[in-house]
Write a protein that binds this DNA or RNA. Structure first.
Length: 485
RNA sequence: GUCCCCGUCGUCUAGCCAGGCCUAGGACACCGGCCUUUCACGCCGGCGACGCGGGUUCGAAUCCCGCCGGGGACGCCA
């Protein structure tokens, strides 16, 4: 039987990195086995769902390089792929449960249930539904209905049964039905079925073979297995991925900083780096190779190699990976991605020659960790009216020779005939060194300051070449003005 | 509180199932050196972990028991 897996997020308006990793592992698993990857939108909680929120999911997945074979937008043989559009399907299976006498109406109000939970907790008992309404008579129900109460439908959980499943990453897991918190709700009082129920119906009908999801779903699994059985379906295989933790070792959430895919995209992480990094959170290739393209990930991915211990989300390594990817990215693509950051920083990029911009990026890419660093590092090339830093000024003031270097450099460039090439620049510097009898830092640093106002930066010959004679002169004039007070 | 899951360098992890090849390997980070007439890159080196206690065994990171620690779940959220 061919592998069919699904990623089933609820549209909350943002894609959490934990969800992104779940999607990725499902995707890798599907592609590795030549199976089908399905996208299903879990929006039974209608109040929270919006079209925009669904689009956020599409965008995040596409950005990461994940495509799906079946889904709300592309369709497929087992649609619809949005739970809010599957309501009559669920109704049919609710009827089945009713016929079998496996569900019953419960008229307790949320307030009553909350009260009950509090008391149980106070007594040191695990909170659970007691089964209060399990044996209500018709008259009692009628009475409660007259009070204006709308019932929920609860599933009858068997008294004392050990539910066992073989988890693909955790191993054998056994839970007694007594630990399930009592009879659980399958249909809300507003008639809307609840997650644990719809997920079973959908996974069964969509012929899902492997359910790969976060560890926080382990406690749902026995309930779902009970429903599979009640409905006459065979449960799929389960694989529960270890949690992703924040630096404080608690479940990663918004208070830990950036946790949405979009934030990483906006900061300027390359999708290849981000995906590569996520893949290594809880999984490790047998051969130990860490920089891996999507194809290489697919080739190597094995659910058996997924770690069962949780991982802390620490972006230090992501930063390194991003640098690695930035340095090997095609310049054209990199330029396309960097231009928006330049625009945001106030540059009108239409003023720049595209080829020239690419050359600038070619030399500055080495310095970038994230794309949003680009405007800062590229400033040296883009802005001629810079300010000479205080550090640089005092450096020049320390030794009169240093200023002389700048002045001589200026005259030599001014009287230069023809193009200012890298070689020409090196020659000129050598000449200055000989004529003024200076060398080392005393020779190079003044020129650097005159050209950039800073004490560090890219290699001078390259800078000079990309600037051209006119801009070099303009810059030296600008610096001289600031230093000669 | 109850149940479930987890515990190897600061972090991601290899090794654990099939005990000796482990004076525990790699990567990131950190520190130092080299390279570079700057910074970064690159190269070389260093620091650094089997949660604790018992047991089994000639031998345990690996198997067993207990403890401790961390996390998750306990919704008419998904």
């Amino acid at each position: 039987m061919s592998v069919r897996v699904r990623f089933a997020p609820s549209p909350t308006g943002f894609m959490h990195v934990g969800n992104a990793r779940t999607a990725l592992f499902n995707y890798l698993f599907a592609r590795h086995h030549g199976g089908t990857f399905i996208l299903r939108i879990e929006d039974t909680d209608i109040e929270r769902h919006s079209e925009e929120a669904v689009r956020v999911i599409y965008e995040a997945l596409k950005w990461m390089g994940i495509d799906w074979d079946e889904g709300p937008d592309v369709g497929g043989p087992f649609g619809p792929y949005r739970q809010s559009e599957r309501l009559n399907i669920y109704k049919e299976f609710i009827e089945k449960l009713k016929e079998k006498g496996l569900v019953y109406e419960c008229y307790c109000t949320p307030e009553e249930l909350e009260e009950m939970r509090k008391e149980q907790l106070k007594r040191g008992e695990p909170p659970r539904y007691t089964g209060k309404c399990r044996n209500l008579t018709e008259e009692e129900k009628e009475k409660l209905r007259k009070m204006g109460r709308k019932p929920v439908l609860r599933f009858k959980v068997p008294e004392d049964r050990t539910i066992v499943f073989e988890d693909l990453v955790k191993g054998r897991i056994e839970i007694n039905s007594r630990q399930l918190g009592g009879d659980f709700v399958v249909v809300r009082s507003n008639g809307m079925p609840v997650y644990n129920f719809v997920v079973v119906v959908d996974d069964a009908l969509m012929k899902i073979t492997h359910v790969i999801r976060g560890e926080d779903h382990i406690s749902n699994t026995p309930k779902q297995i009970l429903l599979y059985e009640a409905l006459g379906f065979t449960p799929p295989a389960f694989a529960h991925l270890p949690m992703i933790l924040g630096p404080d070792r608690s479940k990663l959430s918004k208070r830990h900083g950036s946790t949405s895919v979009r934030e990483f995209k906006e900061k300027g992480y390359l999708p290849e780096a981000f995906t590569n990094f996520l893949a290594l959170l809880g999984w490790y290739p047998k051969d130990g190779k860490e920089i891996l393209s999507m194809d290489e990930l697919i080739k190597r991915f094995d659910i058996k190699d997924v770690n069962s211990a949780p991982a802390i989300f620490d972006t230090t390594k992501l930063n390194w990976m991003n640098q690695v990817y930035i340095r090997s990215y095609p310049v054209e693509k990199l330029t396309d991605l960097i231009i928006p950051y330049l625009e945001k920083a106030g540059y009108d990029t239409s003023n720049f020659n595209r080829k020239w911009l690419e050359k600038v990026i070619e030399v500055t890419r080495e310095y970038l960790t994230v794309l949003s660093d680009a405007p800062g590092y590229m400033e040296t090339f883009l802005k001629d009216d810079f300010e000479v830093s205080e550090e640089a000024k005092s450096f020049l003031a320390e030794n009169p020779d240093r200023l002389k270097v700048i002045e001589l450099f200026y005259h030599k460039i001014k009287s230069l005939e023809g193009e200012l090439s890298e070689e020409k620049f090196k020659e000129i510097i050598k000449e200055i060194g000989k004529e003024l009898k200076v060398k080392g830092k005393n020779l190079f640093m003044p020129v650097r300051i005159a050209l950039t106002g800073k004490m560090s930066g890219v290699e001078l010959p390259i800078l000079v070449k990309l600037l051209g004679k006119e801009r070099v002169l303009k810059r030296v004039e600008n610096s001289l003005k600031q230093v000669n007070l």
